[in-house]
Amino acid sequence: MVRVDAVGGRPATMQRGVVYGQTYLDLNTTPPPIAWQMLRMLRADPPGRAGGGDRKKTFNMALEQAEQLLGAALTVGPAARPLLAFYGLSQAGRAVAAAAQTVSNNEYRLEGHGIRTGEMQGVMNTGLAALTVTDQGKGSFTKLANFLGAASLPEATPIGELWGLLPDLSRFPLPGMGTMRPVSIETSPTTVRAHDVPVSIRGIPQDLAYTAPGSGGDPDVDASGYAEERQRVIAFLDRYPSLTGWEFRAPDGNPIGLHLVGNAAEVPVAWPNAGYGEAEDEVLDRHTIEYRGYQRLAFPVVGGASEPAHPFLLWWAILYALSMLARYEPKVWGSLININESPDAAAIEHCLEQALHLLPELIHRTIAAVAG
């Protein structure tokens, strides 16, 4: 089903019975007031297992608290914003858990943060990217990771490694952040479909590509170079567990079709779909996360986990760390957000601004995903 959004006049799709608005404003996402109203539409008849009883009450009050806390965060600056932003997302997590279709009535209640930071005072010298967060093995973060089938950070993980996994934070990079990024999955209506789902995976590092020499090159050298390229790309994509089952569209012994696009590379692959057993969107939903209405992303493993990262939990971990600094180390926090002195300040400001614009839609999509 297709409708035209009231803002922007562009099509937006209905998936799983939930309307996802899509606009083309500067932020390329549903504006917060519309996203919140979409969430409010869920509350009379909540999705998944939040349809009645205590789970409905939890779902509705948690969303009300999330809306009020994140709305209040818009009224304050960076000094206090992470406190309100994190607790707003934390309450939204309770709504996600209440709606989760696979979670029993004995398991959906969330208690405790489920995550902790490393030593915080040293951040004044090392920078924010070096501050670590770790799953505590129980509590809200741990449970949500389990509900979402996502990485729970069993090892101490620097904030810098998580920062680079959120595409919206790349415009103002955090000094010292990691190099891993999500990859995007692109479909093409002009690609011939067989008994598979053909896509291109974009975001592969350029240095994995083999560059053939000019005319007159040695065919044996080229064959060896392309074989090594194939193995490098396989090793890279093995870090993205949700992509499991993909196959190169080019058979062994041939170039895989890796080519440069902008600052990265992309490669054509396909997922087998014998006898068209699944609709194409169902296959894509199993292997990717729909992000902001116009991207399908796959996230790498992180934090010593075997599961992929998830944007809801990435925001949770980052905002938790910022809130802990602001609450318990105000001197350190004041130093980090001093725009005249701190190299981290612009990135932190951008992160907090993006969070308040993006989280309502991310909350909506995450609820839809777990509600089934």
Rank of each mutant, 00 (worst) to 15 (best):
H195I: 04
G334S: 06
G245W: 11
L322W: 07
I115W: 02
V301L: 11
A368P: 00
P300M: 10
I339E: 07
A317V: 07
W333A: 01
E229C: 11
P311Q: 08
S140G: 04
A326G: 01
V76D: 00
S224A: 15
A345I: 03
D26K: 12
G9Q: 08
T102E: 09
I289M: 05
A50M: 00
A326Y: 01
R3G: 14
A35I: 11
T29E: 10
R181M: 06
A73S: 14
D252I: 07
L359D: 03
A279W: 12
T134A: 11
G293N: 05
M38Q: 15
L89V: 14
L128N: 07
F86T: 07
Q295L: 15
P272V: 07
V133D: 04
E107M: 12
A62Q: 03
D135I: 02
P33Y: 12
A279P: 06
M41H: 12
A145I: 02
A130H: 09
R286V: 03
Y291L: 10
Q65A: 13
G293Y: 00
P173R: 06
K56T: 00
E161C: 00
G122T: 13
V4G: 06
R292S: 04
A66M: 11
A145Q: 06
V103S: 01
E119C: 08
V302S: 05
L169I: 00
I201K: 10
N106T: 11
A270Y: 10
R292I: 08
R94V: 00
F141G: 05
G71F: 04
D196K: 06
Q121R: 13
W316E: 04
F59N: 00
A305Q: 03
M324V: 09
A85Q: 12
G21C: 06
V221T: 13
A98V: 03
L144N: 12
I159W: 05
P31Q: 14
M14F: 09
D26E: 15
D45L: 00
L42P: 03
M180P: 01
G21E: 12
P308L: 13
P311S: 15
G203N: 04
L166D: 13
N60V: 11
R365G: 06
N28S: 13
P330G: 07
M38E: 14
D220N: 15
V123C: 00
Q37P: 03
G71C: 05
I234A: 12
W163F: 13
S184T: 14
V199G: 05
K143I: 02
N254V: 10
D45I: 01
W246L: 14
G118Y: 08
K143Y: 06
F172G: 02
T366K: 00
L314I: 10
L356M: 14
N146M: 10
V269N: 03
G176F: 08
G48T: 04
K57L: 15
